[in-house]
Design a protein around this nucleic acid. Structure first.
Lengths: 237, 237
DNA sequence: CGCCCGAGAATCCTATAGGATCTATCCAAG
DNA sequence: CTTGGATAGATCCTATAGGATTCTCGGGCG
């Protein structure tokens, strides 16, 4: 009955191996520690995780869809190159389309949605406070900034999910990894915590007003400002 | 040097096995011959195509992304259930968002785009003629309707590609399979050839006008009409 | 000194084998 | 007649092996 003692398998637990491998590689990629172009050898990863190449191969196919890795037949997988300027512009446009449409669908906001939105906004603001406090001391805590990014994403996801359209959610998930990369490359220092929190507050107020056009406009304004700030960052400082 | 004679391998050529398997299964699914819920056994498919289960498995992971198949851990893959009414509504909304946004980005149309659009429109109209002619004789040719659907898709893709945004194209490809299913389930008889061709002509004229709002409005009108017609079809006849 | 090329190693890709799990059938008990 | 359980078969999942291709590096030639 018992083939091995539970909790002792080298790197990975015994259930749903493929998904576990996928998550491990995903978080490795999202951490941003790997240089673009780095080889992601099947056998190497399999050895590192103490599994066979087959589930690793499946996980890589799944990862291909996120755009974080590129595949060349018979040559293997590599970490995708960083986002070019034109890609960044297109990514912003796509996000703007998705989120403003979602806002229009979600408006007017239900009490449930408003509660979710306020809760997410509070978490985002709190995370922003911690980041700013650490920054004031000259420290840059990677786990804090990761937490801040997660709270930001969560806020935007509240609007998306309350649009009640699974295809929009699916599209957002597809873009998710790229958006994460964008944050890392274009906003390394997180210099816009205050502005972002304030603009999120504006979005909350717009939804609370009960209108339809106001939330859409507020979200559009926010995203345009984010784009503007990241462009300014791109050009230096 | 030579391990086997080229052109003799049972079902599949010798280069990029995984992709070939993917395409074969995809066209099988898009043909609509399989009942929803049908099991898609890895080993069975592997035997039928005369390959090993490994590339089949990879192809299935890739197919999962299209939404045409569903996977349950340790239970295998099945043909996805047909689109429910609410899914259909969400799909229409997502398409409307994508295509109207693409139209706004593509407008005003360049001469190149106008040429592509007119060419695609001509092919669509010609395919529509053939379908209508066959229908007048009481015949329903599956290959003709498939050709007609392809021409319709091509027309819409012209607008999408001239929006010059790879993420929009990517999203459209993600929805592509579902849209295809929608056509099959909600418009089995292709009863709206005339209307569709006429409305496409309206889209062409709107782009030719050189404006920005006109094409967006024309596309929105077209998609709203398609939705209306398929709903009417849904309710009976 | 630079360029080409060929042998070795590493890697990818596909095929096969075996353990684990699910499904279906059959039989017995209520 | 229905229901529960057990056994047999099929299927999925992971691991291992071997052929095919690509990368690397050292030697020879212009």
């Amino acid at each position: 009955m018992s083939a091995s003692t539970p909790g002792l398998r080298g790197g990975i637990e015994r259930r749903g191996l493929r998904d576990h491998v996928y998550e491990r590689i995903l978080e490795l990629l999202l951490s941003g520690g790997l240089e673009p172009g780095t080889r992601l050898g099947i056998d190497t990863i399999a050895r590192d995780l103490d599994v066979s190449p087959t589930p690793v191969r499946e996980a890589m196919v799944q990862l291909e869809r996120t755009g974080l890795v590129t595949r060349e037949a018979l040559k293997g997988y590599r970490v995708a190159p960083p986002l070019a300027a034109d890609q960044l512009a297109e990514l912003f446009d796509a996000r703007l389309m998705l989120e403003t449409t979602a806002a229009r669908m979600a408006a007017p906001a239900t009490p449930d949605m408003l509660a979710d939105l306020r809760s997410a906004h509070a978490r985002h603001a709190a995370a922003g406070e911690r980041v700013a406090a650490a920054l004031a001391q000259g420290r840059v805590d990677p786990s804090l900034t990761a937490e801040y990014f997660a709270a930001d994403t969560e806020f935007h996801d509240v609007v998306l999910h309350h649009a009640r359209n699974r295809y929009l959610v699916q599209m957002s998930e597809t873009l998710g990894a790229q958006v994460h990369r964008m944050r890392q490359t274009a906003l390394q220092g997180v210099p816009d915590v205050e502005e972002a929190v304030a603009e999120h507050g504006g979005v909350v107020d717009a939804f609370a007003s009960g209108g339809v056009d106001e939330p859409v406009a507020a979200l559009r304004r926010h995203l345009d400002n984010v784009r503007e700030r990241s462009l300014r960052f791109e050009r230096g400082a």
